[in-house]
């Protein structure tokens, strides 16, 4: 077992009255598993993902429960230890490939960032070799050219591929994809999904795939969590959830998938 979330909750304290955004969420994630989290906006799925990545602010926020990554609690871990995990063991890709890359840094440097921080023993040539290898792995044409490009010279789909390469370059155990395909058009979406599946098979990285798009979740996930208003509504294998939903909310969500009828 790679990740185990136990009775996790978040309470905001930045207003007069505390506000609960996540409550009593428990689930586990195995090595090499793809877990989909589905829910509408405000259901707490992104907050949970940020917590797992150790990106929640430390102040004005009360956290409950435990998030065990390889047996150690991310929530209470010391800062330098957490930083050792981030980028090396846990990686994340974001929704907006337009803003997720630094506009003034060459792609190559950004892909190498995790190596530069965590693998100081590597020299420039080794780093470059690794970066190019991953740019090739994410199926970018002409990786040498992309390596020397700036983000504005690439399309949205290419940028998201670069993000995946940058996340995977350190061979992490866990990849969190927070609405990673939402900003892309449908054909590119399908390519990215295929790419994530391929990477999952080849390098056995566990993927936490967060989306509000049920058909994508169904396509990619092994197991699914359904969240609503900060609570876990239902969890199970992807076929069980979609074929035999137990909860009313899940049924409603599934019936809301648009169908093309001829």
């Amino acid at each position: 077992m790679l990740l185990s979330v136990e009775d996790f909750g978040i309470e905001f304290h930045d207003h007069d009255s505390p506000e609960r955004v996540v409550e009593g969420v428990s689930f586990t994630l195995d090595k090499g598993e793809i877990l989909g989290i589905v829910g509408e906006s405000g259901s707490g799925k992104s907050m949970t993902a940020l917590a797992i990545a150790g990106l929640l602010p430390r102040k004005k926020l009360k956290k409950e429960g435990r998030i065990l990554f390889e047996g150690e609690d991310v929530l209470t871990m010391e800062r330098h230890k957490l930083r050792g995990l981030q980028g090396d063991e846990i990686c994340m890709i974001f929704q907006e490939p337009m803003t997720a890359l630094n506009p003034t840094m060459k792609i190559g440097l950004q892909v190498e960032e995790a190596l530069r921080i965590h693998h100081t023993e590597m020299n420039d040539a080794q780093r470059k070799e690794r970066a190019i290898k991953w740019l090739k792995n994410v199926e970018l044409d002409d990786p040498e050219r992309v390596y020397e490009s700036y983000p504005h010279q690439l399309s949205g789909g290419m940028r998201q591929r670069v993000m995946i390469a940058a996340a995977m370059v350190g061979n992490p155990q866990l990849l969190i994809a927070d609405e990673a395909t939402t900003a892309l058009d449908v054909t590119v979406q399908a390519q990215i999904i295929k790419l994530l599946q391929k990477i999952n098979k080849e390098s056995q990285v566990a993927i936490l795939f967060i989306s509000h798009d049920l058909s994508l979740i169904r396509q990619i996930s092994h197991n699914v969590l359904v969240m609503q208003n900060g609570h876990l509504v239902e969890k199970g294998a992807v076929d069980d959830i979609f074929e035999h939903p137990q909860q009313e909310y899940t049924r409603k969500l599934i019936s809301a998938i648009p169908r093309v009828e001829l």
Partner: peptide
């Protein structure tokens, strides 16, 4: 507020690296 800063933090970059390099 842009994601690339969050992304750099997630790569394990320290505060000073984020401020001055990114």
């Amino acid at each position: 507020s842009l994601d690339y800063v969050k992304s750099a933090a997630l790569m394990g970059a320290g505060h000073m690296r984020i401020i001055f390099v990114h």
